[in-house]
C-alpha cells in the first residue's frame, strides 16, 4: 500500500472499479484491442527503471525511479479521465506534480515545451513489432501546462503500484486533455524551445491537435465530442454532456486566454 495524502484537486465523483480501469486500456504498445494491454503487459520489466531528463535543464542525466520518488510528495488524485473516443472514467491516481521533478532537474529560462517518450522494447511490447504507430510514442506539453499543479506523474492507482497496462512504472496524467496526451511508461523527458512532435498529431494532424484539450464544441472530424459515455455506468445509462476542459476550466482556462481553441485544438 502506497502512503499518499489527499488532494484538494480530487473529484468527489465515484471512481471506476479497479477491474474497469485495468481491463479497458488504449496502450498500443501491447496491441490494438482495449483488452490487449491487460493480456500482454505482464511481460514488461519495470524494475530497474530510469528516466532520461535532457535538453534545457541545469541537471541533465539519467534519473533512477527510486531517486525520482525518494522526496516526491505523493498524493491521491481522483481525476476524471476523458478519452478522445468519447468515453470516460474516474480514476484514483497516486502521483506527484510534474513540476516537482522539473524543478529538481532545473528548468532553464529558454525552455518553452516539454517532450516525453515511452519506452521502446519490442521484445516486451508486442505492439511495437508492428508499425501501427511511429515508435516511440511521443507526447508534449507547453511548459506552463507541464508546471500546472493539476499535471502529475502517476506511479500508482487505488493505493497500489501502477499496473503495467496503465503505464507502469511512471506515467503522465493531464486531466483536462484527452487521454492520449497522458503518455505511459515514460523513459525520456526533454525540455525544448520548440513545440515537440507528438504521436497522434504525426499520425493525423487534422484529427489530433497538439493541445487536445477536452472541448465539447470542437468535434473530432469523424465523431462528436459533445457527450461521452461513462464506462461502468450500465448498459442503459446513456450519455453525459462533455464539459469544457473536462470540468477543470476553473483551474486551467487561464492558460489559454486569447487563444482560438477551435484553431489550436
Amino acid at each position: 500500500k502506497i502512503e499518499a495524502a489527499k488532494s484538494r484537486f480530487s473529484t468527489d465523483a465515484a471512481p471506476n472499479t479497479l477491474s474497469e480501469i485495468t481491463t479497458y486500456n488504449n496502450f498500443y504498445e501491447f496491441g490494438w484491442d482495449k483488452g490487449d494491454p491487460a493480456r500482454n503487459a505482464r511481460l514488461l520489466t519495470t524494475d530497474p527503471w530510469a528516466v532520461e531528463i535532457s535538453g534545457l535543464v541545469d541537471r541533465p542525466g539519467s534519473y533512477g525511479l527510486d531517486d525520482i520518488l525518494k522526496d516526491a510528495p505523493l498524493e491521491e488524485r481522483i481525476y476524471r479521465f476523458r478519452c478522445v473516443e468519447a468515453w470516460s472514467m474516474v480514476i484514483p491516481w497516486i502521483g506527484f506534480e510534474l513540476a516537482h521533478l522539473l524543478n529538481k532537474a532545473g528548468v532553464q529560462p529558454g525552455a518553452k515545451y516539454v517532450a516525453f517518450e515511452t519506452l521502446v522494447r519490442p521484445e516486451e511490447m508486442p505492439g511495437q513489432t508492428t508499425r501501427s504507430l511511429d515508435w516511440p510514442y511521443r507526447e508534449g506539453l507547453r511548459l506552463d501546462e507541464a508546471m500546472h499543479p493539476l499535471t502529475i506523474l502517476a506511479t500508482g492507482l487505488y493505493g497500489e503500484a501502477m499496473p503495467n497496462q496503465n503505464g507502469a512504472p511512471i506515467r503522465l496524467v493531464v486531466p483536462w486533455k484527452y487521454g492520449f496526451k497522458s503518455i505511459k511508461s515514460i523513459v525520456s523527458i526533454r525540455l525544448t524551445d520548440t513545440q515537440p512532435e507528438t504521436t497522434w498529431n504525426m499520425q493525423n494532424a487534422r484529427e489530433y491537435g497538439f493541445y487536445s484539450n477536452v472541448n465539447p464544441e470542437v468535434s473530432h472530424p469523424r465523431w462528436s465530442q459533445a457527450s461521452e459515455r461513462r464506462v461502468g455506468a450500465g448498459i442503459f445509462a446513456g450519455r453525459e454532456d462533455t464539459v469544457m476542459f473536462n470540468g477543470y476550466g476553473a483551474e486551467v482556462a487561464g492558460l489559454y486566454a486569447g487563444m482560438d481553441l477551435s484553431k489550436d485544438y
Binding site: 468535434s219 469523424r222 465523431w223 462528436s224 446513456g238
Partner: peptide
C-alpha cells in the same frame, strides 16, 4: 444504448459523420 436516444446528436451525426 450508445447515443442514449439523444436525437439532436443522432441527427447531427447522420448528416455530418461519413462513417
Amino acid at each position: 444504448l450508445d447515443m442514449g436516444l439523444r436525437w439532436d446528436e443522432i441527427l447531427r451525426d447522420l448528416y455530418k459523420r461519413p462513417y
